[in-house]
Amino acid sequence: MSELRVRAGGLYTTVQDTGRFGHYHMGMPPSGAMDTYSAVVANMLVGNPDGAGVLEGTYIGPTLEFTDDRVVAVTGADVPVTLNDEPVEPWTAIRVRSGDVLGFAMIRAGCRAYVAVSGGIDVPVYLGSRSTYTLTGIGGHEGRKLADDESLPLGAADGPGPGGAAVPEDLRPDLTGTAQLRTVVGLCSYRLTEGGLASFLGTDWKVTKDADRVGYRLRGGTLDFTEREQPFGAGSDPANVVDLGYPIGSIQVPGGDEPIVLLNDAVTGGGYATIGTVISVDRDRIAQTKTGDAVRFDSVDLDTALAARRDRRERIERVRSRIAR
């Protein structure tokens, strides 16, 4: 069986695909690649199905050694990539041979790099997905992040592929500047005062060190809750509600000063008031913000959210047709 050698695991590298669905009702989040667009495009470049297993590296990428002829592509964060210590292009299909070593330098922008290898990272499928959910240690490679000096199984590739296909610049995400996160305000936003909501939308929030696959904690402003007699069963804090389900992308503000945006490994429910939800497409963008970066929330309606989703699908199809040529 063919394998990929992990010489160095990097800071926090996991196997992900497009996610594990249908288990939210029992408390299990979907996991999956945080930046869906980059993961799907990486697979496309190497000739894999969109949902094949890829590696998601965070801040410090892994060092990987190939043991046979493959095609590899790196997408996502803006980070210098090397093959045998020579620079190679990201967003491009690269042919590799046994003994070749793929490495990463320091990231310039963004947070998460995706590595797709032709044939896919072929870890066992658990509940319909190869995605890693580290909190309970399921899926991916032994339910955990990669360690140094180990191996991952690769699937069979339909021939090594030509290599050379590249994603045009205009179809690569722009990761510079303040991340604008389009947000459908609602859920329990009635808990905020008018001024609280204005402050939420008017603040440049900064990503704190507590920003991982479960959620991003932000800082930079204070939000006021309306006074009320707490309803039965909710608990005494003004930010408390009767425990309810949290959508992926939903924003809660425990304590009123540090909003948390829940992401792919979200806790699925709890007792804090949610005040809105980042639209699915812009989860790709927050996934590429790093500790210290600035984000803003822009209030949009459902039509805008659905249109953004259609746009992303069209962009993916444009990449597909450009690569096929």
Partner: peptide, 8 residues
């Protein structure tokens, strides 16, 4: 010597 990651 440069920081390889952001944080505290």
């Amino acid at each position: 010597i440069k920081a390889q990651m952001p944080g505290v």
